[in-house]
Design a protein around this nucleic acid. Sequence first.
DNA 1: TCCCGCGG
DNA 2: CCGCGGGA
Length: 928
Amino acid sequence: MPPVLYLIDGHALAYRTYFALASAGERLQTHSGEPTAGIYGFASVLMRILEQDRPDYLAVAFDTGKTFRNDMYPAYKATRAKMPDDLRAQIDHIRQIVDAFNLPRLEKEGVEADDVLGSIAKQAVEHGLGVKIITGDRDLLQLVNDRIIVNLAGNKLSEARDFTAADVVETLGVRPEQVIEYKGLVGDKSDNIPGVPGVGEKTATSLLERYPTLEDIYAHIDEIKGAMRAKLEAGRESAFLSRDLATIRTNVAISLDLEKARANDLNLPAVEAIFRELEFRTLIARLAKLAPGYQPPAASAAGGQLSLFGVPITQVGQSETFANHYSVVNTPEALKELQQALAGAECLAVDTETTGVDPLRAELVGISLAVVEGQGYYIPVGHRTGEPQLKLDEVRSALLPAFTDPKLPKYGHNVKYDLLALRRAGLDLAPIRFDTMIAGFLIDPASRSLGLKDMSEDYLNLTMTHIEELIGKGKNQITMAEVPIERAAGYAAADAEITLRLVGPLRKGMAERQAEKVFETVEMPLVPVLAMMEQNGIALDLDFLKQMSTELTNRLVEIESEIYRTVGYHFNLNSTQQLSDVLFKALGLLPPDPRKKTASGHFSTSADILEELRGQHPAVDLILEYRELSKLKSTYVDALPLQINPDTGRVHTSFNQTGSVTGRLASSDPNLQNIPTRTELGRQVRRAFIAAPGYRLLSVDYSQIELRIVAAMSGDEAMRQAFLAGQDIHAATAAAIQNVPLEQVTKDQRRNAKAINFGLIYGMSSFGLSRSTGLTLAEAENFVKAYFAQFPGVRRYLDEVRKQASQRGYVETLLGRRRYFPNLKSGANPNMRAREEREAINAPIQGTAADIMKLAMIALPGALQQAGLHARLLLQVHDELVLEVPENELQGTAGVVKDIMENAYPLSIPLETEARSGISWGELQPFA
DNA sequence: TCCCGCGG
DNA sequence: CCGCGGGA
């Protein structure tokens, strides 16, 4: 194999990784607020290449200013979004890193990095080298041939992949050398290359299959029929110009001194200094491993310095390389050994393999355990491969003592899942002391990479096998039960082992961010409570839903034909785009606010727009009714029965503790936190949620908990007095603003005051307020002014929160749950800034309410048991708890629940609750 | 993927 | 403001 020259496209890679990290929710920055996502992305890819590929030669190309393409076509890249300012500033750091690695920088005035890469690549091939180009820019694919491959970054850092000529054909449908012809036809929106108007991807690939180049197409233009031919003829000039723009030059006068590109003499202290300055801690750790083991390519055959188990890090978790470090427990002897290990254990990490994603339906396939780092156990119990495995009964009695040992703390990743799966198999797990997913969430609530695989990369720098490598994906997916034990074991044991290994770094991470208190007093104790609620589930009145569905269908059919009749023709009512055309083109209605665009360029048809169009055409009212009914039918009435668990006959929602950045729970499968309540018809759906025979549903909700929290946290006297006096807070607000006695507040005044109170909680602007109230912007501004004049403490509090958010970079709830706002510190653009300021105001209010509710939920089961009551907690809807209560215990239970909720976390303002009960969620009556 | 709409 | 889900 010839030596290989690695060429990195510096800008494209920084750009791509910047957005990859941003879209993954990472807001990378240093302590002082300097954004680093682009640098980090670039540096980690560079490190990965040095560690894993050991390139013979490596150089990095950069763009410089305007290029000859702008002379050819002034609009070139004119529409491309300007590079974000904070990324631009990062490019210089990237250049420094390249220098510190002693790698050549390739740049030339007047040409793009693409052209530099193309030219150098061509020269290298002529010298007999292989070339690999690392970029984020698909255009480079045109350079691929049998000596040049391109590694293209994906939407996530881990999704980069190599493209050979065959890969290009498979992905784009054309050969690499045809990429420019393809661009000539299709153009490129992001570079503002026009192409041939009207020719899309499909047309272009099929044309290029028959005629390999533009020249061939136009030479045979008479073989092409109809409209396509006309389009091609009209776009002829544009096609050739576009192709020229898209063509990467390979004859740029630039040269590379290969000796300088030998990737073997990085200036370690310089790199480390830069990484330290940028606070790339994990990269520094990798550096230490890289430097001593790094040999000139000729002598690098020994290798092996990068490993944890003596294998390259990419292979950890794959069974063949993990083989010495896990045991399959499928004999009585092995089980005995495991029991002995458990007896001496100080902690126990647990993971389960099941046949599905719903823990209340899936079957248990195997249990993984780890008690020390570097060693894992896999206990198969449900493999359907005919291989020997222990009986579940034996496993259960062997494990139960340790699993329920009060002195043995249990760890897991999303451990609520495993708890439920184990319970269904007759096991249990307590006490649960550490959930790595929740810990990761508290360290960064905005993180979208809380999967075990992601966290393993982020915190341990270990790449794990993905489950799809075992069970496949799509329609050929099998379940874990069909995977041979030996193949499953390495993967499964690694899950428990990695979980165990994550605990240390996560504790440290939580300590740095002072998240331990919320973790230990709120989130971890909540896990078993939520598991219990999910297990309980809630009963549905199926007959009622069936009848409702029929009635809705009938009415929908009526409305639909009525709409088609008034409009004059048929169209797809459920397509918002078609609807927009019908209303604003065919019917000629004027969009009330023509600025209200949608991303696809259509006018919005949202309910508030339609609301304004009422009366202008009979179809409008009908559409609004249609929308309401079809939403109800598809989302609730027809969907809920499908979610009933056949074993229990009830629906078991899943509560996610890591779903909401503010600390609220999120409910899914089905979401029982958005069952309608605001309209009469919607409320009907709630009637389908019923109590079991002999039971009643009891609902207790906090009244105005968020405003009470504002009053307490801000200490605003006027607001506190209103609450202490037990006044209707919205009316009291209106009275204060309008300066009228409380009794004289009109409905309108109260409604506006209510809107501003809500706006307050949501950090809303005058603009938002005017939208939600129908006041003019000026009126809304005056209203806000009057509000703050009456509640000066609230204003001070809001200013304080904003200041804290921008100075410290985070805000926190009363219990210390934090939400981070790195962009406020670094002064991002005004839009983002305003958005984050609103989020910063909302987070402590909503988050404190969420914390208090969680504390109540944790305290409740013990209090009920203490009182000898048998109520079951079923649902939490942010400020409401729903329980199923034996009829004769209603009164006592209501008292306990109210007491627990009202005293969960004492504020300087009393928390009040309201209890209601009934046989269904839809017809609850206040308690006597 | 976007748009819309349900809840708090 | 924060979510989840249906449908094109």
